[in-house]
Write a protein that binds this DNA or RNA. Sequence first.
DNA 1: CGCGATGATTTCAC
DNA 2: GTGAAATCATCGCG
Length: 446
Amino acid sequence: MDEQTRLMHSHTGVGMAGHPGLPQHMQEGTGGTDGDGRKQDIGDILQQIMTITDQSLDEAQARKHALNCHRMKPALFNVLCEIKEKTVLSIRGAQEEEPPDPQLMRLDNMLLAEGVSGPEKGGGSAAAAAAAAASGGVGADNSAEHSDYRAKLTQIRQIYHTELEKYEQACNEFTTHVMNLLREQSRTRPISPKEIERMVNIIHRKFSSIQMQLKQSTCEAVMILRSRFLDARRKRRNFNKQATEILNEYFYSHLSNPYPSEEAKEELAKKCAITVAQVHHSSDLCFGSIIWEWIVSNWFGNKRIRYKKNIGKFQEEANMYAARTAVNAANASSHGSQANSPSTPNSAGSAGSFNMSNSGDLFMSVQSLNGDSYQGAQVGANVQSQVDTLRHVISQTGGYSEGLTANQMYSPQGINANGGWQDAPTPSSVTSPTEGPGSVHSDTSN
DNA sequence: CGCGATGATTTCAC
DNA sequence: GTGAAATCATCGCG
């Protein structure tokens, strides 16, 4: 029988009698000055702890209780907590800084943009707006086409939210469970509130990483869905007639400067019923706002280049729109003003034409902001457009015999002599003998 | 299926 | 960054 066993046996009863489980010198609060005594006490405690499993449950409970109730316990607890804090936790604390994960932010943004994690339902506000716009404006076909997509998106959204909620709930449950556990344990081992808090953080981090996975797969799902339904970047869809007409109308009424301003583009996008839905269907990058002008820009880019390439081909179209706009203009401004002075087809010149048309753009956007009827905006379009169209009409009526001649008659006015939008970078190619481009070099005197 | 029309993208110059 | 020009890819019609 070694000494420890002997000690244990001898002390067990005594300890229980006084303040059970704790050495006598601590009970006295005097502090053991003799090393032997302290060593004995420690050994005693260790023995008690080690034998605790051998004891009956009641016995163990009683001992536990006794330990908890000991008056030195809080102090001891604090000291131990402190020590623990300084050793173990400080190591862990170093890596506690939580930088806002850019990846997570990206995912969040995307989910938000896709309307998955957005405020309210219906497959996302963007899609909803698209649907609304589509039904109101151009494409009933679009809304029909997208309903499937939207349904699927809603499905994804629902799953996402359900899962998210589930995770949230599980996280909370687990957290409270762990917290309770730790609190309970803190009665018997040194666990500071700070540590509990830390543990909670760790749990949350774990769960948020799970959430991130959820978000990631949701994003993937949306991407796949999108690529299947909407993406098809090159899968173009012709604009409907109305949209084309509106764009054409603007184009031909701003022939001298067919570069719509941002505002004008936006207005065109809206008014001309190039709906959000169309925007979505035709672009894969961002559901955001920029695209509105984007499509219009595309259209104008194509239009400019193709018009310029072959003016003859667009002659008829130009006439039509010019006439139409002219009629509108005439109706609108019966008094005419200087718009009715088409006697100076060339007089506008480069600078003049630019300025005028710019003001025209501005005017139009203002118009459409105030009065909202599309007709009104068109009619009130601007002075320059009237000038343009009237000039056009006049030049047409003046001498329209055949495509080429018409071009030559036509070119100088709308397109202007110099500084216009056409005769820019490649004069040589532009002045090629045949057709449209040839007209550009504007030597009307010939 | 061929072909022109046309929307979108890429390339290039400024 | 913006627009022109070239090019791609699809649509729609005969």
